[in-house]
């Protein structure tokens, strides 16, 4: 990924988006305290410091997911990625981070690169991740130990790969929804949103 590259291809776009998800998921897991903070290490990417997990199991899991996701992004068959945070004891869904992915399928036919510099895309990605960090200002405190789950919505006709299983949408009832920023590589567009349990006040 050199900054001299001016255009962007489908492959590059898929890679960028997958990379975003890798960092984004790590950030959420860190920010929301799903894993203990000492199991994260700081790296610099997108000109900002980010936390990446050092837990080998989690790392492995995320690499698997992201590489699968990259494939689907390349085929433009993925619609949504959802990170669900559930209470470990009661299995109640407490938070739901949803990333809607819009693919421009015409990019599959024409291989001509699109005009958008990586710099601009990374700037957009940065502001999305910043916003994820900033959400602690209004999200409720997760008081209980929590687990997380990743859901990927794909086109219907896709074969479910090994180690993946079909699941329900895990919607929170009575939720408050906040749209976050979005970014686009001009081939993939990612809209982010977080939903959380509504406070009983006001």
């Amino acid at each position: 990924m050199t900054s001299t590259l001016k255009g962007i291809t489908l492959k590059g776009s898929a890679e960028l988006v997958a990379e975003f998800f890798s960092f984004g998921i790590n950030s959420i897991l860190y920010q929301r305290g799903i894993y203990p903070p000492e199991t994260f290490s700081r790296v610099t990417n997108y000109d900002m410091s980010l936390q990446l997990t050092t837990d080998p199991k989690l790392k492995n899991y995320l690499t698997n997911v992201v590489s699968q996701l990259k494939e689907w992004l390349f085929e433009c068959t993925v619609q949504k990625l959802v990170l669900v945070i559930t209470c470990l004891e009661t299995n109640e869904v407490l938070e739901r981070w949803q990333f809607d992915i819009e693919c421009d399928k015409s990019a599959k036919e024409s291989s001509a690169p699109r005009e958008k510099s990586i710099k601009t895309i990374q700037d957009e990605i940065r502001s999305v991740i910043r916003q994820i960090t900033a959400t602690v200002t209004f999200l409720p405190l997760l008081e209980t130990p929590c687990a997380f789950d990743l859901l990927v919505y794909t086109d219907k006709d896709l074969v479910v790969p090994d180690k993946w299983e079909e699941s329900g949408p895990q919607i929170i009832d009575q939720s408050e929804e906040v749209r976050l920023r979005s970014f686009t590589t001009s081939i993939h567009r990612v809209n982010s949103m977080v939903a959380y349990k509504k406070t009983d006040s006001v």
Partner: peptide, 23 residues
């Protein structure tokens, strides 16, 4: 979207609440 980014601009001035805030 877009107009609702106000909270981000003043995120430092928002005290987190245990039960969260209604957006």
């Amino acid at each position: 979207e877009g107009g609702d980014m106000e909270w981000e601009l003043s995120k430092e001035n928002i005290q987190p609440l245990r039960r969260g805030r209604a957006i």
